[in-house]
Amino acid sequence: MSVNEDTREVRRRNWRDVDLRAVAPFAALVLLLILGAIVNPNFIGINNLANVATRSAFIAIIAIGATFVISSGDLDLSVGAMVAFVASLMILFMNSGVIADPALMLTAAVAFTLVGGAACGLVNGLITTVGRIEPFIATLGTMGIYRGLTTWLSQGGAITLRDPQLQELYRPAYFGSILGLPVPIAVILAVTCVAAFILYRTRYGRHVVAVGSNSDVARYSGIPVNRVRTIAFVIQGLCVAIAVLLYVPRLGSTSATTGILWELQAITAVVVGGTALKGGAGRVWGTICGAFILELVGNIMLLSNFISEYLIGAIQGAIIIIAMLVQRSLVRKS
């Protein structure tokens, strides 16, 4: 074997080892785009795609938080209920009228929501780490609690933003655009960039991956394992709060059924994006891609006439299973 061949061999092997799992979700996305274009020519138009991206914002942003929690080896099932709960709190706060000036009120409400989301995440984190309860059970419990509190706050009905002045002021946060880019898409990009920076370029990000891939190694390396895990839950809470900030101006209302099954979609987006569910490898951009894929599938179903759009939930459930199967086969190959 000549030297040349040898290096080529090595390079090819590296390529296969490293990139396949990262590339897979993007390849799937491209395939879907092609499929969509075949099904309906309107699909590939910039308006439709921008619309899809905008609508994927809630799940995408929540899934970014989930990427941290899952990378650190935990799981948060409460995010859907948390959206409903935090959104209720935000609207009730704005309806309370404690601050007269609308602009000031809105600023305070945003701060209040972020703190509320972070607090909900902190509760999840402390129950799992300090209380030493499996994250699956801990967040299943808080899922019930957040959902129940929402139902109680809304008395089974809806909570609606009453002040028309506030509504008018807040509306552009979902429907507006910055330099031609719809605000939700801009927020997705901003959140993803920050998240990618934290996960790939900071000490904390490295700690998350270490804790997720082997918490014993992390502990023996002097990493404060419980703090790292708790902070991941707080990041998840903050992401939920950001999603709520976009959700409230869209309808100006929330109810006990807000955000139902969003935890399934968020976790699906993370897994489709190539993050290992057992922890230890986080892929932020993959997650965004996963969220986009989920929304695209729904969109294609809507635009085509073969499959009833009422089957969307079933399709999304199938996607997570397929994604896991693909992930495993890719792991075996490398």
Binding site: V209, A210, S213, N214, D216, R219, Y220, G280, A281
Partner: peptide
């Protein structure tokens, strides 16, 4: 292997 190194890193 189980406390010293991250085998997948």
């Amino acid at each position: 292997k189980s406390k010293g190194l991250l085998l997948n890193s």
